[in-house]
Amino acid sequence: MNGVPVSAYLALALILFCIGLYGALTKRNTIIVLISIELMLNAVNINLITFSKMGIAPSITGQIFAVFVIAVAAAEVAVGIAILLALYRNRKTVNIDEMNELKH
């Protein structure tokens, strides 16, 4: 019933993952870094769901794991933004390259 091969979904996930990775490692704004990480998680979710439908042993488990991933990602974003705000109150900046306190 489907005309779209599994490799197309995986390739899409790969491209999104690479974009997310590049963004996470180059952007200076911490919020964008966080959101890039979300993008990478989404790419992973696409993979999970793809395999749940078209993997070696298709089953609902892939979708269950995607649910967990989404839940963890949500928690991560909540804590991440909270930390970011606390940092911003102290440092008056959201630039990640100015946050190098741990070096000292």
Partner: peptide, 19 residues
């Protein structure tokens, strides 16, 4: 990184029966 993985997946087909 992308190239290596693409080389791994571009011809992938598990040929599984749909559920």
């Amino acid at each position: 990184f992308g190239a290596v993985f693409y080389a791994g997946i571009y011809n992938l087909d598990f040929g599984s029966t749909p559920v």
